[in-house]
Computed example of a mutant assay.
Amino acid sequence: MEWTIGWWQISVQRVYPTKAQLSQTYNQAASWWHQHLQLLGYSYAYRELWRSLKNADMLPHSQDKLTICDCGIGTAAFSLAFAQMINPQTHIAGVDISPQMLNKADQKLALAKVPHQVYQSDVNTLPFADCAFDAVICAHTLEHLPNPLQGLREIVRVLRPGAPLILVVTQSGLLGWLIQWHWGNQCFNQEQLSTLIHKAGLTQLQFIPFPFGLARFTSIACISFKRS
């Protein structure tokens, strides 16, 4: 944005946290993050989201050995909800830039006896081979990337043909702006997210509403699939 006032030109440009800053921010939040999500109703909302997808028969739940990548796993709230509602024997590969978040995720998944392994990495450079996963799940991570399309294309790379991406992002609006002000992320509306997803090469996009609660007003959830 630019304004001209008399002989002065004033500009404002959006900046994003560096990887080191983002890691430090979430390291500091790791000790209370999981309880925070539970108190705000996100853990319940995540379970209901998985219930909706299961009832719609849109997930690869019939295989004995599913392998799923959770990009931006945090303290594993999204993965734990998946394990509870879909398949507790799914192997979770959890990726996060914050080592403290990964420590918490490792503890939570181990306590729940969910097969898993955690990796400290940036979503833009996932440490996995092409077509490695039966699904990728990603909650409130894409909005932290300066170039979200790059991150989506990297996610598509590690998906098997025909496999789904289940994505949750911060929604544009007043509450989204308040979250953005504190955490330095960006927000999306459905049109913006749809454009990004199609550019990344994903198809069959469907948006899934959250149940009544805070997540319904702060977040957008959707599922899309890698071309076969």
Rank of each mutant, 00 (worst) to 15 (best):
E2V: 12
T4H: 12
W8A: 14
W8D: 15
Q9G: 05
Q13G: 04
R14G: 00
T18D: 14
A20G: 11
Q21C: 11
Y26S: 11
Q28I: 09
W32E: 15
W32Q: 15
H34L: 10
Q35P: 09
Q38S: 13
Q38D: 14
L39T: 09
L49W: 08
L49P: 06
R51S: 11
R51W: 03
K54I: 04
D57I: 05
L59P: 05
H61C: 05
L66V: 04
T67N: 04
T67F: 03
I68Y: 05
C69I: 11
D70Y: 07
G72V: 05
G72H: 06
G74D: 06
A76C: 05
A81P: 00
A81Q: 01
F82E: 06
A93P: 00
V95G: 01
I97C: 00
S98W: 12
A112Y: 12
K113P: 06
Q120P: 07
P127C: 10
P127Q: 10
F128C: 01
A129V: 07
A129Y: 07
D134H: 15
D134K: 01
V136Y: 12
C138I: 09
A139S: 15
A139P: 13
E143H: 14
L145A: 14
N147I: 10
L149M: 00
R153L: 10
R157Q: 05
R157L: 04
G162A: 07
P164N: 07
G173N: 08
L174D: 05
W181A: 13
Q186R: 14
F188P: 01
S194D: 00
H198L: 12
G201S: 02
G201M: 04
L202A: 05
Q204W: 04
F210C: 01
A215V: 02
F217A: 06
F217K: 07
A221G: 13
C222K: 00
C222D: 06
C222M: 09
I223R: 03
I223H: 01
F225I: 03
